[in-house]
Design a protein around this nucleic acid. Structure first.
Length: 589
DNA sequence: GCCGTTTTCGGCCCGACTGTTTTCAGTCG
């Protein structure tokens, strides 16, 4: 079984155990074990072989055995039994907001309910309201939860959420009553998909802020409206929370709601070890009970915490960028002063992998070069599809070589355009050979090599050796491995492929790897870049733009690169035009 | 189920909100 599948399986076991009423800490152990597996820094098979899997933080004796069984046989008796003991309907019910494992268990045990339909009927007949601990309101909430669960449960692309979030943030900051405002949550951590939006505002006058927030024209429903918190839902199902706090608590709320949960747990443990207690309302001396009332009335144990950096400093840590707060090893790195200086959008000098009208893009070479210059980029690589991608109007050798000439012509003109590099997105065919041979590709400045067809039906081994063959191919020019897994977020999983082996092969053959910044792709995934960086494989952030507007995707890609912990030095297209030109020339043979 | 510069056993982050209750369990982030 693939590593990702094993992680999913552990996560599922956690969920199932929750429904059995198992110790919540055991549940969390499975969930954090899944996380540990997802962000493993070494090859799983090597760890198993060398008997070192148990040394990974979060994976102990029991999980080691289960992971080995899943990896080597794809089976786990413990899981099969557990799975069989719990009806599918109960798992599905977890999607109903406010209806958690304990309540689900109760309706199952007391009323024998096993499916969503039975639950709905029991709500409507009044049987749910009669259960001890339940009431009329509970039944109503379950019913509306069932009706809305598809919209509520949906995740959204980071890029789509950004277009909702930024105008709201701007609107909040313009309000007279607002001192400070930020977006928190997984959006601020630049996760590739976002569940809902969290806004944190510092203000001494919450009412007008809440009023503005809940009164926005694109709000379809106000789901909560309290003293410090309001929740709304927009068209399309995206939900947003607004929290208004006093200015001296802003940093704590912002940090808390930025998360991640695992990061917060580690921060609090660290605070406890220093005799302090950390929460979204502040930092307090441990054991000192709140004298009365709300937590935000309690005096803080430390004064002068104005920015998040001050908070980290109290815990003797360097500032940890939001992107890195996933509860992995960021606290250790911050303690040792080893955090990377993350790449910024302004560091980019150019980009690669863009399409024009010649294949399936919407703009001309000139349009693209001009738009790139308008964004402050010094160069832009074109990589239209090759002939095998006939569905995308891929170029044959003649058309491609014509384009190469045309690019040289445009480059010789003076003006308002970024320098064009001639490339091609060459298809990796089913057998791992490339769609164009060396006689064509050696006339290019570079090529992107990507899989576009025959994605399913191949085993992990077959796909891996197919792609490695392409990585090793002699093209006579620099190769960039394009979207290495082919995933489309929220739509389809990537194909089965051993990313670690691809990285090794790339390192051995001087091949670069793309961070495809198309919001649906974000491929290669941020979780793999540390291995690539350690192997010395540069990252190329590319928008895979099919129009001038798509060049903006680069911003999305920079966020993903930051999440991956990459520095400007590790991103190829932060190099100046001169250095890039030199690099491309050196790669020619 | 994991983990150890208080611990190999006994902990494991913290607070608000909701709906149900007369003091709290469950859920959520």
């Amino acid at each position: 079984m693939e590593v990702r599948e094993i992680a999913d399986r552990l996560e599922e076991i956690g969920t199932l155990l929750e429904l059995t009423g198992e110790n919540p800490f055991k549940v969390r152990a499975y969930q954090s074990g899944a996380r540990a597996l997802e962000s493993l820094e070494e090859d799983l098979d090597v760890l198993i072989e060398e008997d070192r899997l148990g040394e990974v933080k979060g994976i102990g004796k029991a999980l080691t055995e289960k992971i080995i069984s899943l990896r080597q046989t794809g089976k786990l008796e413990f899981y099969d039994k557990l799975r069989k003991s719990i009806p599918d309907g109960l798992v599905e019910m977890l999607e109903i907001p406010g209806f958690g494992p304990k309540k689900i268990r109760k309706v199952h045990e007391e009323l024998g309910i096993e499916t969503m339909e039975e639950l709905k009927a029991a709500c409507e007949s009044g049987r749910i309201a009669e259960l001890p601990g339940f009431g009329k309101k509970s039944a109503e909430n379950i019913l509306s939860g069932i009706a809305n669960r598809i919209a509520y449960g949906k995740r959204h692309l980071w890029w789509d959420v950004r277009s909702v979030a930024l105008p709201i943030l701007e609107g909040l900051r313009e309000l007279e009553a607002v001192d400070r405002a930020e977006v928190a949550g997984s959006f601020r951590r630049s996760m590739e998909t976002v569940g809902d939006l969290d806004f944190i505002v510092a203000s001494s006058k919450p009412e007008p802020v809440m009023k503005w927030f809940t009164g926005q024209s694109n709000v379809v429903e106000v789901t909560a409206r309290g003293e410090t918190k309001s929740s709304v839902r927009f068209e399309g199902g995206l939900q947003a929370d607004l929290r208004v706090v006093p200015d001296d608590r802003f940093v704590f709320a912002l940090h808390h709601f930025t998360g991640s949960k695992d990061h917060n747990v580690k921060m609090r443990q660290r605070a406890l070890a220093r005799g302090l207690s950390l929460s979204e309302w502040g930092i307090f001396n441990k054991g000192e009970e709140p004298e009365s009332g709300k937590a935000y009335d309690r005096p803080l144990a430390r004064k002068g915490i104005k920015e998040e950096a001050d908070l980290f400093k109290v815990l003797e840590l360097d500032f940890i960028a939001p992107e890195m707060r996933e509860g992995l090893d960021e606290l250790e790195l911050a303690e040792e002063g080893q955090l990377p200086r993350l790449v910024q959008f302004e560091d980019l000098q150019g980009t690669f992998h863009n399409h024009t009208k010649a294949s399936d893009g919407h703009n001309t070479l000139e349009d693209m070069a001009r738009a790139a210059a308008g964004m402050g980029l010094a160069y832009i690589g074109i990589a239209d599809h090759s002939k095998a991608s006939f569905q995308a109007n891929g170029l044959d050798a003649d058309r491609l070589l014509e384009q190469v000439e045309r690019i040289a012509e445009i480059n010789s003109q003076d003006g308002d355009k970024a320098r064009l590099f001639a490339g091609c997105e060459v298809d990796i065919l089913k057998d791992g050979t490339l769609d164009f041979g060396r006689e064509v590709t050696s006339k290019l400045d570079y090529c992107v090599i990507s899989v576009h067809a025959s994605m399913s039906g191949l085993s992990e081994e077959e796909m891996t050796s197919r792609m490695i063959r392409a990585i090793e191919a002699d093209t006579g020019c620099l190769k960039i491995l394009g979207h290495p897994t082919g995933r489309l977020l929220l739509r389809r999983e990537g194909y089965a492929v051993n990313i670690r082996k691809l990285i090794e092969a790339a390192a051995a053959n001087g091949v670069l790897i793309e961070l495809n910044a198309n919001p649906w792709r974000m491929d290669m995934d941020w979780r793999h870049w540390r291995q690539a960086a350690e192997a010395g494989v540069p990252c190329v952030i590319t928008p895979d733009a099919h129009s001038v507007e798509n060049l903006e995707y680069l911003r999305c890609g920079v966020q993903a690169a930051r999440k991956a912990g990459l520095t400007a030095e590790q991103v190829f297209n932060t190099l100046s035009l001169d250095r890039i030109t030199e690099y491309l020339n050196n790669a020619k043979s």
